[in-house]
Each structure stands twice: as structure tokens, then as C-alpha cells.
Design a protein around this nucleic acid. Structure first.
Lengths: 125, 125, 125, 125
DNA sequence: GTGGTCTAGACCACG
DNA sequence: GTGGTCTAGACCACC
């Protein structure tokens, strides 16, 4: 369910956040679904419970899930909507990188091709 | 000449590297041009000299500049070419973000639009 | 009769206690009235019977009700008086918050207004 | 500078957050001031560095301070304003408690007295 | 069983 | 020196 890269420079807890958001965005996790418990996931991924706790707390802060102590943690009703909004901010990242590529003389086609590749990977497979 | 963000999560020395590369990519810094001295730049930016030293060392390692002890540090002949190649790696970043946007249901047109915006912004100005 | 928030940080059993006390304070529950049975309330609120048991035990400990095994649980004669005394402790909470507001520069009038609003709301309804 | 209660039910990290906010509200901590370092404060209070890190991270999330890795953590320009706004929400807490006191038959004068006591404590001393 | 908090101690990158 | 992350292991309250 989750894929961890222990050696990159993105912290583990952030990988969990990102991947959970992606699961919500793609509809695999829906409103009311229970997230894997801190302990269970900790064993499955061989990651310290505290690290997962940190990731889950952040997701909660963003309003994507709520915790019912003693019962588990559940995806909220507007999680999907919130993730969608958040993703729009990433368009700015693309624009920013595109500016650099432009300045460096990389042809526009290459940049557009990269975007298509990103979309194609999901749609074609 | 340089713009430093002391609070972001990208280290200062990396900001120096990035911005220097961009100056080379955009032709503002050309072969044979002298880079600002560590001491001068350190004062101008209120940045620790060690930090600048680290940035410059990395630029040298990448073959973008050479130091002539006692004379200064100069942009190399193939700096422009090397930067161009390096930038291609950023296409992967775009592809990676595009995958996420795709998963989140953001329409392809928006992503392509962001790329065009990045290119357009520079060409129109 | 009861309103439960499963996600807040106040434990469910404490919510039951608080709300029962409030029902007594406001005279809705009077001496000799029967409290809903653990089983019935457990179904109505979809709450674990143990949780309700814990709440009722605490109410008994405070002398607000007594259980007549096999017959039910009943509000005691001095419940109303006891609740009244207990409420006085909340004056300290107000004082504590008032200190913070004072430190933050919130005008005294606003704080007094909030108290009046709390009283007014009940008296007007 | 900080006062920790290890036995109450408010977590230590939250006490740090609250007290820091109060220091900002009362003008003792001003824009640009450096917060005590995680390690230093950890020793002074005999509290684990992680706990302080958690508190500081939350303050940062609320926009009250920024961290310059390697240099320390500093109060932001609008920290004071943000704290002021946040405090207004506490008026609702007062109103809510006042409602309960009203229902319990506590006289209005007692509640108003508690507010005055909170304000008086700071002004008279 | 669940989530939440805390400690102790380690490692890393940055300045 | 600074902040940031992670692990290991413990304890608590709640359901």
C-alpha cells in the first residue's frame, strides 16, 4: 500500500503524507475509510510508530482525516475536495521549473513532452 | 545579483549554486567572466564565507568555473553546455509532478498551460 | 438526550458525565428520576457499554445518583446541590482565561460581554 | 522564562506553545527576537529536545516564528497580530462556560467577578 | 485493540 | 553551534 524510500532526502513521514494524499486523490481511500493503525503500518513498513504518528497528525491538521481515540483514524468527508485544491498549487511548481528550462534554452516541446509522459503513464498502463 | 531565502528548506549554498547556474544558462555569465569573490559576496549577502566557499567548490567540481588562486574565479568555456545538460534532469521533476496531478484528476490542459506560462513569461518580457 | 462528539479530545465518558450534570443543574433531571439504562443508552448512542458504565460509576462516586440493582439508577436528593457546588470550580477557568486575554490586550469589556452573552442566551430563550 | 507542569493533563509541548504565545502577546518577545534553542531550553527545563521541537514546529506552523536552520529560530513580524486574533476565539470559551454557570444557577455577579479577578491580577500587581 | 505523549539517544546537514 | 529526522522503547487514557 505504501512505498518508502529510506535514502532520498524527503523524510519518511512526508512520503507517507504524499502517498496517502495520492490514495485519496485517486479514490482508493474514500470518506469514512479507516487508515491503517499506527502500529500495524509501523510493522508492515518497518518504520517507527512515532514517524507514522507524525505523518498522520499532519494529515489530520490538513483536515484529511480525524482520529477517534481508541477506535482508529478515518478519512473525512471533504478529504477528496481538499486534496484536489492542494494539488492546484503544484501547477505553480511546474510553471517555475518551466521558466528555468526556458532560460536554459531547453525546447518547449521537451517540457510539454514531460507533462504528457506523466499523464500517459497512468492512463496507458 | 543573488537573492537568498534564509528560511526555506533549500540550503543557502544550494541557492547560490542554482542561481549561478541560471545566470550561466541565461547568458548573463559567460565564458571568462569573473565570479564575485567569496569575501565580497559574503558581505553583500550577509552569508557565512564557508557557505559560499562550499557553493563555489561544488560549481568547480561540476566544471562550471575554475579558480585562479590570487586572481579570482572564472566561468569555464563549456559551462553553458554543461548547464544545459544538467537542466534536462528537471524534466523528470515535471513528469513526476504531472503524474500526481493526473492521479488527482487535474485536467491535462491545466498542466500544459502551466508549462506554456513558464515559457511565455520569459519570452514576452 | 445526549450529544456525543467522537473526535474531540474530551473522552466520551466525560461528555456523558458533563451532560448529565448539566441536565441536573438545569432541573431537567430531578431527585428520583431514573437515568437511562446502560444497555439502552449504549444502543441509542452507539457507544460501548463499558464507557457508559464508567460514566455512571463516576456519577455515583460523586453522589449524584445511586443504582438499585435490578431496578435502575436514580438521581439522588442532593444531586442538584452537589452539582451547584461543583460548578463553582469553573469560575477558576474563567479567571484563568481572563488572565490570558488581559495579557493579550483584549479589552475587559469584551470579556465581560462574553459572560453576559452566556447568561443572556439562556435567560432569553 | 517557562513554567512546566508535568502532572496536569495538558501536554508539555502545549504548555510551551501557550506560554510562548503569551510572551508574544505581552510584548516580552518581539519581532526578530530569537527563541531559546531547542537544546538550551531542553536542558533548562529538563525536557526532552523532541518535545520542544514539537512545540516550536507548531508555533512555526501558526506563523509565529520561522527557523533558519543552523542559525536559530526567530519571532516573525506579524506574530503579535496573529496571537491577538487567536485570543479572540477564547471569548467563545468564556461564553460557553457562562452558559453552563447560568444553567446551574450560579449568580451572574460571580462570573463577572471571576473575569475582573483575571484582569485585576495583572493590572494591580 | 486504538491514539497520544514523552524520554533517551543517535545521526545528518547546515552555518 | 543550530534545526530536522529517526529509532527504540516506555507509559497513559480510552474503547
Amino acid at each position: 500500500m505504501f512505498q518508502i524510500d529510506r535514502f532520498g532526502r524527503v523524510p519518511i513521514y512526508e512520503q507517507i503524507i504524499d502517498q496517502t494524499q495520492r490514495l485519496i486523490a485517486s479514490g482508493i481511500l474514500k470518506e469514512g475509510d479507516q487508515l491503517p493503525s499506527v502500529r500495524a503500518l509501523s510493522q508492515e513498513l518497518s518504520v517507527n510508530p512515532n514517524t507514522l504518528q507524525k505523518a498522520y497528525s499532519e494529515l489530520e491538521r490538513r483536515g484529511l482525516c480525524v482520529s477517534a481515540p481508541g477506535n482508529g483514524r478515518f478519512v473525512t468527508a471533504d478529504a477528496s475536495k481538499l486534496v484536489g485544491e492542494g494539488c492546484k498549487g503544484r501547477l505553480d511548481e511546474i510553471r517555475s521549473i518551466a521558466e528555468e528550462l526556458c532560460a536554459a534554452g531547453i525546447p518547449l516541446e521537451d517540457a510539454l513532452g514531460a507533462v504528457n509522459a506523466g499523464y500517459g503513464k497512468e492512463t496507458r498502463q
